[in-house]
Simulated assay, not measured.
Amino acid sequence: MNVYDNIKKISKLRGYSLQTTAEKAGLSKNVIYTYKKGKNPSLETLNKIAKVLGVTSDQLLGEKKKINNLSDDKIDITDAIHEGKILAYEGKEIPQEEVEMIRRIIEGRKHI
């Protein structure tokens, strides 16, 4: 797989179109399509795209083992809370009070 294919695959796993991925990275909405024709992004651009997708630039360049397992990543919210990990949604940190609210909602569903 090339850079274009990796960006496309990971964007799809994240629920983004390529245009959405580009726009979230602060790029022209069609720039990613230029990579399909063999043009490679600059390191700065690659890092912006990687940040939006929640991966490393190495993964976009083709580190297969992590890319293939992206859809299998699972984080137990209770473990994350107890371990003090920062939780995020669409690249933005979820405030602690909202994390607590999410935990209470999930806990409440266990008793239904």
Rank of each mutant, 00 (worst) to 15 (best):
Q19T: 03
Q19L: 01
T20S: 07
T20R: 02
T20W: 01
T20K: 04
T20F: 00
A22G: 07
A22N: 08
A22Q: 04
E23A: 05
E23Q: 11
G26T: 01
S28M: 11
S28F: 07
K29N: 10
N30K: 05
V31M: 11
V31T: 14
V31H: 02
I32T: 01
Y33N: 12
Y33K: 03
Y33A: 08
T34L: 14
T34W: 07
Y35I: 10
Y35L: 13
Y35T: 06
K36R: 11
K36D: 08
K37P: 00
G38V: 02
G38I: 07
K39V: 13
N40S: 14
P41Y: 09
S42R: 13
S42M: 14
S42L: 12
L43P: 00
E44L: 12
E44W: 00
T45Y: 08
T45D: 05
T45V: 15
L46Y: 02
L46A: 12
L46F: 02
N47W: 01
K48V: 01
K48D: 10
I49K: 08
A50V: 04
K51H: 06
K51V: 01
V52Y: 11
V52W: 11
L53A: 02
L53R: 01
G54W: 12
G54T: 11
V55R: 02
T56I: 08
T56H: 10
S57C: 03
S57P: 01
D58H: 09
Q59A: 08
L61F: 10
L61S: 04
L61K: 09
G62Q: 11
G62F: 08
K64Y: 07
K64C: 00
K64E: 15
K65E: 15
K65Q: 08
I67N: 10
I67K: 03
I67R: 07
N68Y: 05
L70V: 08
L70H: 06
L70I: 14
L70D: 04
L70K: 04
S71E: 12
D72Q: 11
D72K: 15
K74I: 14
K74P: 00
I75H: 13
I75T: 13
D76R: 09
I77P: 01
I77W: 07
T78H: 08
D79E: 13
D79K: 15
D79L: 13
A80W: 03
I81C: 06
H82Y: 04
H82Q: 02
H82K: 07
H82C: 03
E83V: 00
K85M: 15
K85F: 12
I86F: 06
I86S: 13
A88W: 03
E90I: 01
E90H: 08
G91Q: 09
G91D: 11
G91T: 03
K92N: 12
